[in-house]
Design a protein around this nucleic acid. Structure first.
Lengths: 206, 206
DNA sequence: GTCTATAGGTGGATAGAC
DNA sequence: GTCTATCCACCTATAGAC
């Protein structure tokens, strides 16, 4: 019973483990032996499903992006208000952090120059796609008057994506998920209309 | 003629090469063989200066932080205005990008869980130290009325650090330094007083 | 301090039996 | 599809000559 992505049940299990490993240790930080151990199979059988690590890596990005795109589409359909859409977008990242991981693509971005060219291209596509989605939501939110921000929607999308990816990485070293959540909340509040609040309420641990 | 950091000339050359390698490929993405090749020496002689890769990694972070701290101190002394200090802070990152690298610690943050505990601790210290410096500048800027931002200075410092580190990584995959500079400029402009500009002038490539 | 030589381990990957 | 067995390249690290 292959899934939509065309992977067998065994292949999906491999992808699940590999994904978790990349999201914690990075693409250069895990080996076929690690996956084999967790699944209690041999390395050779893994190579049957994914002949090379590059093939495995490409499958990981493709599946990750498909799932992500589906979630973005669901958000668009289920929420009509821009601020709510952004809130849910950030919740996607927060869920990853609560699972003691960071974004797969944020991780791979750090290893960018060591990755095979096909993986680099897919990675770039993921970021571009995310920024497009964000920019559209931002533009719409500003148009309807629900959001407020300086500069172009494209620039703002870049700020948001970069901040979320970077904060995940930095905050992980603090071993305190609240730091990420605090920053994500801040980013969202920055886009609301109410005038600049100069008081520093709700202090945050650092 | 040992430097302030106590490293011999040979050791410094090793650190220079290793630093470049970590900032492009990551700590798990280079080997002693890579350094040996570039310096035209053998791997064994590298081990004389840095017995283990962990020792080398610690020396890298320590030197990086020392240099960084010196630059932050110079900024504090040479510039009195908060916005100018922030502009110069961001220029430090921009200089790294122009050199086709990313921040050493941003890179290591992605590999965090695979690093030896001492390196993890030094990494955390680097980020905390950066956030402290930023928060102080932000607080001062708001006090004197030159800066304006919502939330606490600590939160804002976290946003800035995360955004800069993350944008470096994401923007690198675009092979266009202007993307990083555009975002950095945006982050700085966000902190100025003039009221929210809703027009999207100066579009940016994405 | 730098070298040769090598140990001891792990990496990704393949051949061929079952 | 999974196994055993194996290859070869590369890794970090050490011993000991010069």
């Amino acid at each position: 019973m292959p899934s939509k992505t065309g992977h067998s049940a065994a292949a999906q299990k491999i992808l699940d483990i590999a994904e978790q490993l990349v999201q914690t240790r990075g693409f250069n930080g895990f080996s076929y032996a690690d996956i084999a151990k967790k699944l209690d199979v041999t390395k050779a059988s893994l190579h049957y499903h994914f002949p090379s690590k590059e093939v495995l890596g490409r499958a990981l990005i493709e599946r990750y992006e498909e799932v992500f795109d589906r979630e973005l589409e669901a958000i668009r359909q289920q929420s009509s208000e821009a601020l709510e859409r952004l809130r849910r977008y950030m919740n996607l990242y927060d869920a990853v952090m609560r699972n003691d991981r960071v974004c797969l693509c944020g991780m791979l971005a750090a290893e960018y120059v060591t990755l095979p060219a096909p993986m680099q291209n897919e990675l770039r596509r993921f970021f571009k796609s995310n920024e497009r989605w964000l920019a559209a939501v931002l533009e719409e939110g500003r148009r309807t008057g629900n959001l407020s921000f300086k500069g172009s929607a494209q620039e703002r999308a870049g700020v948001l994506l970069g901040a979320l990816e970077g904060t995940m990485l930095v905050a992980r070293s603090y071993s305190d998920n609240r730091v990420f959540r605090s920053t994500a909340k801040r980013l969202l509040a920055d886009l609301t209309k109410n005038s600049t609040v100069n008081s520093s309420s709700s202090e945050r641990r650092r």
